[in-house]
Each structure stands twice: as structure tokens, then as C-alpha cells.
């Protein structure tokens, strides 16, 4: 993450605050900073979303393409993640500066979305073994204020909710070749079910305690964090992947705490996100979105 310098005294203050369950900005260990969401703001994408979490700012665009399915999974479509750390966020991301961080985020997401129980790849299938949808989920990090994994996964899920796949009909041509006709009508489309799409929750260990939504300063005070990816199914939270980050080591008991906390928070966030996405859709309507974007 973008490096923030802190003195030993500042770190001590943060550490003690975490112990007291009262962080520097008054939050408890389980609180998130305020978030701001908008979908449908990139017109060249099939689906898009922007999520701000304090001053972490993520823009996601989903683009679609017809592709040939992987022969090992003929009935599944494809997902590809791409993360770009814009130099707008910090000069350290200039050129290839952000590529390590980007790679880490891509792997986290791939890991979380890998299971078909987390993402229903069958819905992307067009003709088994021959044609399927491939979705490119392109993530642009515009500003970094800590807790990138969570923000990125929330934005990605929102963008998938917003994604409209044109309706495709198949016609049989001679010699058994199937031709695909993609509807031109922008209102004739299918949506992607996002109920089980996973969210990532970063559970950060500072001293003897764990917390969620670390700020950039808190991340510096932590030696190790666990990223928990949570997928909901029928109202229950499931673990769809996890990994450690930060280069330190964690005791097994702490790990259990992290998983429990991560799952509980993940469930809460999922419900919250779904509610706000539905609310936005109701207010904006499906036809003419009024984009707020960056102008306000």
C-alpha cells in the first residue's frame, strides 16, 4: 500500500486506541468509514460502478465479449479481472509502480470468485462448448485511503449488478453451425444474478486485537491482515477464499477470530450493498440514469 510515515509515539497511540476499542477517529474495531456509491457512470462499459470509502476511490467498468469456453468447463463463461493503480492516487504508482499491489488485488479477487458457488458461471454460457460470454472486470484505483480489498470488491459487485448483457438468440445454420444474434436494443438485455457474488473483508491485526476497515495509518501499524472473502447463499454466509497479507504471521486462535469477524461483517455489508443498489435502481429508473459522477 502507499507508504505513510508514522512516529513510534503515533503508532503507540493507535495501538492503545485499538485496545480500548476506540480508534483515532472515534470508530470501534467493527465500524466502517462512510461510503458513497454510484452505478452506471461509464457509458462505454456494459456495467460500471464507483465506490468511495473515506478517501479510497474505486471506479470499475465491466466490458463483455463473446469467447470460446475453456474446454475443461464447457458450460461455464469466463471472468477476467484487471486492476490499474492510477498515478492520480499517489506518485508511487507512476509507470509500473503500482503493479505489485495490482497483482495482489487481482489474485484476491480471482481466488474469491473461483468457485462456481460464488459466481454462477453457467449464466454466462451461450452455446455449451462453443460460445460464452467473457466479462472483463476492469478496476481503476483513483485514490488510496486504506482498505483497498474491501472497496474494490464492493465496487466490483456493484458493477456486476449494473451490467447488462444483450439478449442473445441462437439460430441453426446449415452443417450444424450455430449462429449467434446479439440484440441491438439497449433495453433488451439480461442481468447477472449477484446474490452469491463474494465480498472481501480485510481483518487487520494490530497488537492483540483485530479490526476491520483499517485506515492508511492503521495499516502501517499492523504486521499481518487476513482477507476474508464472503459469499452469501440463502441468507447464510460462506467462506469463498482467504489469504494473509502483510508479511507477518498469525496465531491460529487469532485466525479463527478473523474468520468469524470477517464472515459476520461480510454478511452485514452484503445486505447493506444489495439494499442500496436496489434503492438506487428504484430512484433512478432503468431508462435514463442521471449521472452525478465527479461533478459534485
Amino acid at each position: 500500500m502507499a507508504y505513510v510515515a508514522l512516529s513510534e509515539a503515533e503508532k503507540t497511540y493507535i495501538l492503545h486506541g485499538v485496545e480500548d476499542d476506540f480508534r483515532c477517529d472515534g470508530r470501534s474495531r467493527r465500524d466502517y468509514r462512510p461510503m458513497d456509491l454510484e452505478t452506471g457512470l461509464v457509458s462505454n462499459a456494459s456495467g460500471s460502478a464507483r465506490l468511495r470509502l473515506a478517501n479510497t476511490d474505486i471506479l470499475v467498468g465491466v466490458k463483455t465479449e463473446i469467447d470460446v469456453p475453456n474446454p475443461l468447463t464447457p458450460e461455464f463463461g469466463k471472468l477476467e479481472f484487471f486492476v490499474d493503480c492510477s498515478a492520480n492516487a499517489t506518485p508511487e504508482f507512476e509507470g509500473r509502480g503500482g503493479s505489485d499491489l495490482a497483482q495482489e488485488l487481482i489474485l484476491s479477487l480471482q481466488n474469491a470468485y473461483e468457485s462456481p458457488l460464488a459466481f454462477n458461471y453457467r449464466t454466462l454460457c451461450l452455446i455449451p462448448g462453443q460460445q460464452c460470454w467473457k466479462l472483463y472486470i476492469d478496476i481503476l484505483i483513483l485514490e488510496c485511503g486504506g482498505n483497498l480489498h474491501d472497496a474494490v470488491s464492493l465496487a466490483a459487485k456493484a458493477a456486476l449488478f449494473n451490467t447488462k448483457l444483450p439478449r442473445v438468440t441462437a439460430t441453426m445454420l446449415d452443417a450444424g453451425i450455430t449462429d449467434l444474434i446479439i440484440s441491438d436494443n439497449p433495453y433488451d438485455c439480461t442481468r447477472i444474478g449477484i446474490e452469491t457474488v463474494p465480498l472481501l473483508v480485510t481483518v487487520c491485526k494490530i497488537g492483540d486485537y483485530v479490526l476491520v476497515d483499517p485506515s492508511a495509518e492503521e495499516e502501517v501499524c499492523s504486521t499481518v491482515s487476513m482477507v476474508v472473502s464472503v459469499s452469501m447463499r440463502n441468507g447464510q454466509a460462506f467462506l469463498s477464499g482467504t489469504h494473509l497479507t502483510g508479511g507477518g504471521a498469525m496465531h491460529r486462535d487469532t485466525m479463527r477470530n478473523c474468520l468469524e469477524l470477517g464472515l459476520a461483517i461480510g454478511e452485514h455489508l452484503d445486505r447493506l450493498l444489495t439494499k442500496m443498489l436496489n434503492l438506487e435502481q428504484q430512484r433512478v429508473g432503468l431508462k435514463r440514469p442521471q449521472i452525478v459522477g465527479f461533478l459534485k
Binding site: 461509464v42 462505454n44 467498468g61 465491466v62 466490458k63 490499474d84 472483463y136 476492469d138 481503476l140
Partner: peptide, 11 residues
């Protein structure tokens, strides 16, 4: 100068 991957009609 950088262009987002979703900025153009073709990715």
C-alpha cells in the same frame, strides 16, 4: 498520460 481500459468502445 493514461487511459482506462474501459474508456474506449473496444477494450
Amino acid at each position: 498520460y493514461s487511459q482506462a481500459t474501459f474508456s474506449t468502445a473496444e477494450r
